[in-house]
């Protein structure tokens, strides 16, 4: 069974499959903004030092440049404030640097990538979302809407989906052959839930406290293991043998 339903975006594709994409919540979005903001901050720190160096003209060769420098400074501040977001979202498939780091992406409400207009709308609306300070309006809007959208997203018809890093190796990892085990090929096949349960236990087992590890292993063996008590006792002698058995059991049906 699934636990509490997480917000998601349902997309019906022309291939007649329903996609369910997980939506990025307020935490992801704030973190992504922090990454972007600190990136821009450090960029301007460096730019400011270079600029003051040019203006103070320590070397006396940049006199002609300082006017140009001032213009660039003004235009640059404007560009980082307004253009940075839209340009990166349009050219990098809905991701700014911060969004890429956090693994989130802007899409339209039908799941397709954003275009210039949508991206421009949602980023120009930062002017209102920022009010009265530090994106307070945006946070309220994200908390109140079902799909965690800020005001700019509502006007643009966009939202942010999350990309998870899912490791499929655990399904196909080769069984450890250190210990020869009885292959109970006659056992009943495992249901997908059992497989998922055993695999998530196996991937977490090295980090568990020894007694918890033993106890959980025993309960899983009880659930999927051999029926006769003798074989079960043989499996349960140590944590290693328990996990080796479980791994073999999951891989058994290959």
């Amino acid at each position: 069974m699934r636990s509490a339903p997480t917000p998601h975006l349902d997309v019906a594709t022309p291939e007649r499959v329903a996609l369910t994409l997980p939506i990025a919540g307020i935490g992801y979005r704030c973190l992504a903004w922090l990454v972007d903001a600190s990136l821009l901050f450090f960029f301007w720190l460096v730019a400011y030092f270079v600029f003051t160096l040019l203006v103070s003209d320590v070397l006396g060769v940049f006199q002609a440049l300082s006017g140009v420098g001032q213009t660039l400074l003004v235009v640059g501040v404007f560009a980082t404030q307004w253009l940075y977001w839209t340009v990166s979202e349009v050219f990098f498939h809905g991701q700014t640097v911060g969004k890429r780091v956090l693994g989130i992406r802007v899409v339209r409400t039908d799941g397709s990538p954003v275009g210039v207009y949508e991206s421009a709308v949602r980023n120009l609306c930062r002017a209102v979302d920022f009010l009265p300070m530090l994106y307070a309006a945006a946070c309220v809007s994200m908390l109140l809407t079902r799909q965690h959208r800020r005001l700019g997203d509502l006007l643009a018809g966009t939202l942010l989906v999350r990309e998870e890093r899912i490791d499929l190796d655990k399904y196909t990892a080769a069984p450890s052959t250190s210990e020869p085990l009885p292959q109970d090929t006659g056992a009943r096949p495992l249901s997908p839930e059992d497989v998922e349960l055993v695999l998530s236990f196996l991937s977490r087992a090295p980090g568990l406290a020894p007694e918890v590890r033993q106890r959980l292993g025993a309960r899983l063996v009880e659930r999927v293991g051999p029926d006769d008590a003798e074989a079960r006792a043989a499996v349960l002698v140590s944590a290693e043998s328990t996990e080796a058995f479980l791994r073999a059991r999951v891989q058994g049906a290959r």
Binding site: H93, G111, E196
Partner: peptide
């Protein structure tokens, strides 16, 4: 349903859908 394989395929198809049905 509800396994990591399901989630993985969901995401994979989502990405492919986005790049195939581009505006």
């Amino acid at each position: 349903a509800g396994t990591d394989v399901h989630r993985f395929l969901n995401q994979l198809c989502g990405q492919a859908y986005a790049s195939i049905y581009q505006p």
